[in-house]
Computed example of a mutant assay.
Amino acid sequence: MLIQVPTPSKKYEVEVRPGLLKEAGRKIEVIAPASSYLIVADETVASLYLKTLIHSFSKEVKCFLVPSGEQSKSMRMFEKLSAYCLEQGLDRSTVIVAFGGGVVGDLAGFVAGTYMRGIRFVQVPTTLLAHDSSVGGKVAVNLTKGKNMIGVFHQPEAVLFDTGLLKTLPQKEWRSGFAEIAKLGLISDVSFYNWLQEHIFHLDAVEESIVTKMIGRAVQIKANIVSEDEREQGIRAYLNLGHTLAHAIEAEMGYGGITHGEAVAIGIRFALNVSNKFLGSKVDVDNFTEWFDSLGYSLHIPKDLDAERLLERMRTDKKATHGKLMMVLLKKTGVACVTEVPVDVVRTMLIQELEAVI
């Protein structure tokens, strides 16, 4: 399956199918001829698949391994990888290959976007969550006080997604990725949202044909949004449904304390409730909650978190303007908007949510 991503700054393709990894190197050499290639790989992924990727190239490649986990998406690791590029003599014709999940994709993409003022890179995602992060060119690292606060827009040359690699993902990573897929249906495609509910009853042993179709459709929705709004000046902000609270939860728990997608699922449920209370929408929150409960999600804010601290982090979210708390909400399923929500409304709902946790 090939999906075109025609953004103003660059046009590229996303290929989604099983068995792609064995051909990835030679495809990259055709798509992005280079003086040298650097594979930036997650350590866990490397132990399983790095040899396959290396052998798919016709020429020698360099490799840099990144410890697994959100902690690697940091300024410290950014500096370490950038220094390695310089030590290895990488030049402006080098292509970086990001091989792993969202952490590696963001880190490697940010280095590619800034090293020598920008070099090319290719995304080879290995997790379900990376269907989202590998497309669209948003690359960044975290600060202690905020997620994805230091970054750039830097589109890849291509995205090569071997869905066969998802077979080795643990359930926690499936939950992390699937929340972002369901989000796409909620903000822009009711028929896709309904299709997901009809076909996804569990997150283990999902049929390969369903996985490929699901990821292909999700990438197409994301590509359509990015093509219209590459730099998040309008509708691309809708992709942040659930993220205002999710990022606050991740920061408060320490990056890696909860997966991004599990935090997003909590954030989506909260945003749907805010939509109904503040906008008067009639989104079926119970339907979403029951479905995600059945998939193994915990949709309540962790009870040891503090409402005021979460609120303060939400007010420093990237969508915030002049200190106002902005959230992505739903007018109805499939129709999103970005709106200012009074702090008192959010505070009250956060407190109620935390008090309800047993």
Rank of each mutant, 00 (worst) to 15 (best):
Ile3Ser: 07
Val14Gly: 06
Leu20Ser: 04
Glu23Ser: 02
Arg26Tyr: 15
Glu29Phe: 06
Val30Asn: 06
Ala34Arg: 01
Ser35Lys: 10
Glu43Ala: 15
Val45Leu: 09
Ala46Ser: 15
Ser47Val: 00
Leu65Lys: 12
Gln71Phe: 01
Gln71Thr: 02
Ser72Tyr: 08
Lys73Gln: 13
Arg76Thr: 15
Met77Asp: 08
Met77Trp: 14
Ala83Ile: 13
Tyr84Lys: 10
Asp91Arg: 08
Ser93Tyr: 03
Thr94Tyr: 04
Val95Asp: 03
Val95His: 02
Gly101Gln: 00
Val104Glu: 04
Met116Ser: 08
Ile119Gln: 00
Ile119Ala: 00
Ile119Ser: 00
Val122Thr: 08
Ala130Gly: 09
His131Val: 12
Asp132Trp: 08
Thr144Trp: 14
Val152Asn: 04
Glu157Arg: 15
Arg175Glu: 11
Glu180Gly: 07
Glu180Lys: 03
Gly185Tyr: 05
Ser191Pro: 00
Phe192Val: 07
Leu196Asn: 00
His199Asn: 14
Phe201Leu: 10
Phe201Ser: 11
Glu207Ile: 09
Ser209Ala: 13
Ile210Leu: 12
Ile210Pro: 09
Lys213Glu: 11
Ile215Gly: 05
Val219Gln: 01
Ile221Asp: 13
Lys222Asn: 12
Asn224Ala: 05
Ser227Lys: 03
Glu228Tyr: 02
Asp229His: 11
Glu232Gly: 03
Leu239Ile: 06
Glu250Tyr: 03
Tyr255Met: 08
Gly256Tyr: 04
Ile258Gln: 12
Thr259Pro: 15
Ile268His: 05
Arg269Met: 03
Asn273Lys: 15
Ser275Leu: 14
Lys277Ala: 02
Asp286Val: 15
Asp293Ala: 13
Tyr297Trp: 01
Tyr297His: 12
Ala307Phe: 01
Leu311Ile: 03
Arg315Leu: 12
Thr316Trp: 07
Thr316Asp: 07
Lys319Cys: 13
Gly323Ala: 14
Val328Pro: 04
Thr333Pro: 02
Gly334Met: 04
Val338Cys: 11
Val343Lys: 13
Asp344Ala: 10
Val345Phe: 00
